[in-house]
Amino acid sequence: MEEKDFFPLFVNVKNKKILIIGAGKIAYRKTETLLKYGADILVITKEIREEGFKNLKNIDIKIGEFSENLLKNAFMVICATDNKELNEKIYKICDEKNILVNNITSKTDMNCRFGSIINNEEYTLGISAKGNPKKAKELREKLEKIL
């Protein structure tokens, strides 16, 4: 597995088209986060596995399968299925098209990574532990106490 270095970056996703493939627990968490920042979200899934999706407002959910035409005008794609091969396939397509893509089943088959976020009146901090979300969360919780 090739190790990748990720450049830390804060990006405005307000009104940007974001495609989320899958509707499980992790997809739900990422959807909630992106909604806080005003993203325009389309979720495509074979089935809704996380009940919380039914309570989210301002997202489109379509029952179906991924197809490349869904990438038209996409700013970012979240591969959040439990099918590692499908996620890898989508990653490769998106990367070739210069679309930001996050893949929940790999630490390397992606070109963007979500950090653990602290957002208060004075600071917005993004924490990455090189693909280890548990370590990032632990540090976030320590820093939240300090701030």
Rank of each mutant, 00 (worst) to 15 (best):
E2M: 06
K4Q: 10
K4D: 11
D5F: 05
F6K: 09
F7T: 14
F7K: 09
P8N: 06
P8Y: 03
F10P: 00
F10S: 03
V11W: 12
N12W: 04
N12I: 06
N15L: 11
N15G: 04
K16A: 11
K16S: 13
I18D: 00
I21Q: 11
G24N: 06
G24E: 02
G24A: 12
K25W: 01
A27R: 01
A27K: 02
Y28N: 03
T31G: 13
T31R: 07
E32C: 15
E32M: 15
T33S: 15
T33L: 15
T33H: 07
T33Q: 11
G38K: 14
A39W: 01
I41D: 02
I41A: 12
I44S: 08
T45N: 10
K46Y: 07
E47L: 14
E47D: 09
E47M: 14
R49A: 07
R49W: 09
R49L: 15
E50A: 13
E51P: 04
G52A: 14
K54I: 14
N55C: 09
L56T: 00
L56R: 06
N58M: 05
N58L: 08
N58A: 07
I59H: 07
D60Y: 11
D60L: 15
D60N: 14
I61N: 10
K62V: 08
I63K: 15
I63Y: 13
G64D: 13
E65D: 12
S67R: 07
S67L: 01
E68T: 15
L71H: 05
N73C: 04
F75W: 11
M76P: 02
M76L: 15
V77E: 01
V77H: 00
C79W: 02
A80Q: 08
A80L: 05
N83M: 07
K84I: 14
E85V: 06
E85W: 06
L86I: 01
E88P: 00
K89C: 02
I90Y: 12
Y91D: 04
K92Y: 09
K92G: 03
C94G: 05
C94P: 00
E96Y: 11
K97V: 06
N98W: 00
I99H: 02
V101N: 03
N102T: 04
N102V: 07
I104E: 01
I104H: 03
